[in-house]
C-alpha cells in the first residue's frame, strides 16, 4: 500500500516573505494527487518539503504519521523524487538507475533485473549502455523516472516530469507513466501548471496560487466549481469576469444580462467564469453584454474570436470559440455576448 502524507500548519518564507502557506493537507495511501498552479505559486517548494529536501520554517510534514525530519534512511528510501531537471549522473543509463539500488544494498544480479525492468517500462531499455548525459531531454526524463520507479517507492513525488516536452511527447510520457504505475499501490504527488493534465490524471487536485492553497477537490469539482477567480484562471477558464447577482438570481456583468442565472448564491458580488466555447456571440441589440470583435483566427476544430466587452469601467477582453462552419462576425463588428450556463461557473465574488 502507498504511503499516507499529512501537511500541517506549514509556513515557508524567503527573504522575509511567506512563499508557502498550507494549513492542512492530507494525501491518502495510493492516491494520485496533483498540485496545480501557475509559475511561482510554490508548487516545487511544497514538493521539496514533502521530499524532505528542504525544511519548513514552521509546521510539520508527516509520512505515515512520522515527521519527515525524523525519517531514518530506510524510511526516506520509501520516497521517490523525480525533479523537473533530470539531474542524471555522468555515467551510463544503467548505472544511473542501478546506483540507488546499490545504495540500498540490492544484490548485483537482482539490481540489474530491477533496473532493466524499470527502463523497459519507460521504453528506454535500449539506451541502457549509453552515457546518460548524451541523451535527449525526453530520454533523460524517462531515465530519471525509471531511476525512481526501480526502487519501488511507496510515495512518488513528481515535479513537472514532462517539462520541456512537446504536446505529443507529453501525452506518450504520461501514458507510459500511467502504465508503469498501473500495477503498483504507490501514492503519487505530481506538480503541474497544465490544468488538462491534472484534470485528466488526478484523483484529487490541489490548486496553489501565490503560495496558498485555494482549493482542494476532485478534478470534476475543481473544473465545474472553482473556488474563486484565481482558481478559475488556473483551471483554464478563458473568460473570468466580475459580476453581480440580482435578488431574482440573474447574473449581470456591468449591468448587462449574461443569460446566466443562479438560485444557489444570494444577491451580491459574483464572478462569472466561462470557457471560450461557452461564449455565444449574437447580433448587436440582442439582450447581452455589448462587445466589438477585435479579431478572428482559425483554431483547432473551431474559430477563435477575440472580443472587447464594453463595460462602464472600460473594455474587457473576451475569447469565444465558434464552430468551424458557423458564420463568423467580421473584425470591428458590434455584437452581443451571452454565456452558456452548462460551460460556465458562477462564483461568489468580493
Amino acid at each position: 500500500m502507498g504511503a499516507a502524507l499529512t501537511v500541517r500548519d506549514v509556513r515557508v518564507a524567503r527573504g522575509g516573505r511567506e512563499v508557502l502557506v498550507v494549513d492542512h493537507l492530507d494525501v491518502k495511501p495510493s492516491e494520485h494527487l496533483f498540485v496545480l498552479g501557475p509559475n511561482g505559486a510554490g508548487k516545487t517548494t511544497l514538493l521539496r518539503l514533502l521530499a524532505a529536501v528542504t525544511r519548513p520554517d514552521r509546521g510539520e510534514v508527516e509520512v505515515d504519521g512520522v515527521p519527515v525530519r525524523r525519517l531514518g534512511l530506510a524510511e526516506r528510501r520509501r520516497v521517490g523524487y523525480v525533479t523537473q531537471r533530470p539531474a542524471l549522473l555522468g555515467t551510463t543509463v544503467l548505472s544511473n538507475v542501478e546506483l540507488p539500488l546499490r545504495w540500498r544494498k540490492v544484490p548485483r544480479a537482482r539490481r540489474r533485473t530491477m533496473a532493466l525492468g524499470a527502463l523497459e517500462r519507460l521504453q528506454v531499455a535500449h539506451l541502457a549502455e549509453r552515457p546518460a548525459l548524451a541523451l535527449s531531454g525526453g530520454e533523460q526524463q524517462r531515465v530519471n523516472l525509471a531511476r525512481s520507479l526501480a526502487c519501488d517507492p511507496d510515495l512518488l513525488l513528481l515535479d513537472e516530469p514532462a517539462a520541456g516536452l512537446d504536446t505529443e511527447a507529453r501525452a506518450i510520457f504520461f501514458a507510459d507513466l500511467e502504465r508503469a504505475l498501473a500495477d503498483r499501490a504507490v501514492t503519487t504527488v505530481q506538480v503541474t501548471h497544465r490544468p488538462e493534465e491534472a484534470l485528466r490524471h488526478a484523483d484529487r487536485v490541489v490548486v496553489l496560487v501565490d503560495g496558498a492553497v485555494r482549493q482542494v477537490g476532485t478534478p470534476e469539482m475543481i473544473n465545474r466549481m472553482p473556488a474563486d477567480a484565481a482558481v478559475a484562471t488556473v483551471v483554464g477558464y478563458d473568460n473570468v469576469l466580475t459580476a453581480r447577482i440580482t435578488p431574482d438570481g440573474a447574473v449581470l456583468v456591468g449591468e448587462w444580462p449574461t443569460g446566466l442565472a443562479t438560485d444557489g448564491l444570494g444577491p451580491g458580488p459574483a464572478v462569472v467564469a466561462a470557457f471560450a466555447n461557452a461564449v455565444q456571440v449574437g447580433p448587436s441589440g440582442r439582450e447581452g453584454l455589448p462587445a466589438v470583435v477585435r479579431g478572428v483566427s482559425p483554431g483547432r476544430g473551431h474559430r477563435v474570436v477575440l472580443l472587447d466587452g464594453r463595460l462602464p469601467g472600460g473594455l474587457v477582453p473576451l475569447v469565444a470559440h465558434l464552430g468551424i462552419d458557423a458564420p463568423a462576425p467580421a473584425p470591428g463588428e458590434a455584437v452581443s455576448v451571452r454565456f452558456d450556463d452548462a460551460l460556465s461557473a458562477i462564483l461568489r465574488g468580493r
Binding site: R48, A51, A52, V53, T54, L73, R76, R77, V79, G80, Y81, T83, R85, A87, L99, P100, W103, R104, R147, S148, C151
Partner: peptide, 13 residues
C-alpha cells in the same frame, strides 16, 4: 548543479 546533493539524498544516499 546546486540541487545535486538534495537530489542524491532524495534517491536514498
Amino acid at each position: 548543479p546546486p540541487e545535486l546533493p538534495g537530489h542524491l539524498r532524495s534517491l536514498g544516499a
